[in-house]
């Protein structure tokens, strides 16, 4: 499964949520499908997308929150899984794209390439429901179920280590300014 295909498949439901993504390919690809004011791209601060999602979900329990994480980012903040599990906000869904690679910086393999199992780590951390998926139909079914469930869920989607810069994207840089995104996102949340 390619990450872009996965994003396309879940995009219709993502657009009804508040979404926090990691930097790099995930941010560029989601923007290429159509930016929404409820999408925030955490360009840098690696590892903290899940912590941000937790902060939003706890502050606004009435809003569905999705974190689009990656194996490299999550490996930088494995302790954060235990914090998410501790408070387990039911309005939070944690989707991890695991391509076993630090793709944006040369494709060096991460520890998931040698057997570290992030869905297993999430389960052992106490996340109420975690699952690893390899195929697109399974991903969409699990993602829909996670959004409909009144429960924190982690979905680890195994994807190909593949990235082609979308049109209008230079490398990983899009024409959406970091601060433009940040203030728009804040206003959007205030309007909900």
């Amino acid at each position: 499964m390619r990450r872009l295909e996965a994003l396309e498949a879940i995009y219709p439901r993502l657009s009804d949520c508040v979404v926090v993504t990691i930097m790099g390919a995930v941010a560029a690809e989601l923007q290429s499908l159509g930016h929404r004011p409820g999408f925030f791209y955490l360009q840098h601060a690696m590892g903290l997308a899940s912590s941000m999602g937790l902060g939003i979900a706890l502050s606004r329990p009435d809003v569905p929150v999705v974190v689009l994480d990656g194996d490299g980012s999550l490996l930088m903040n494995l302790g954060g899984l235990t914090t998410m599990a501790r408070y387990r906000p039911p309005n939070l869904t944690h989707l991890v794209f695991d391509n076993e690679s630090l793709l944006s910086v040369g494709g060096f393999p991460t520890a998931t390439s040698t057997g570290s199992d992030l869905a297993g780590v999430a389960a052992a951390a106490g996340i109420p429901y975690s699952v690893r998926v390899h195929e697109l139909p399974t991903l969409t079914a699990e993602f829909d179920a996670a959004l409909d469930a009144d429960e924190l869920r982690s979905i680890v989607a195994k994807t190909e280590a593949h990235y082609e810069p979308p049109a209008a994207t230079s490398g990983f840089v899009t024409d959406l300014g970091l601060l433009e995104n940040r203030f728009q996102f804040q206003r959007h949340l205030a309007s909900l």
């Binding site: 601060a45 912590s51 902060g55 706890l58 502050s59 903040n77 235990t82 804040q186």
Partner: peptide, 26 residues
């Protein structure tokens, strides 16, 4: 009070960023 007990302090930066953008002072 929403108390978030962390595993490591840097997580708290992310949590406070999320709280601020969601309208909660932290």
């Amino acid at each position: 009070m929403i108390l978030v007990r962390l595993a490591k302090e840097e997580e708290g930066v992310g949590v406070s960023m999320g709280a601020h953008l969601a309208g909660v002072k932290s």
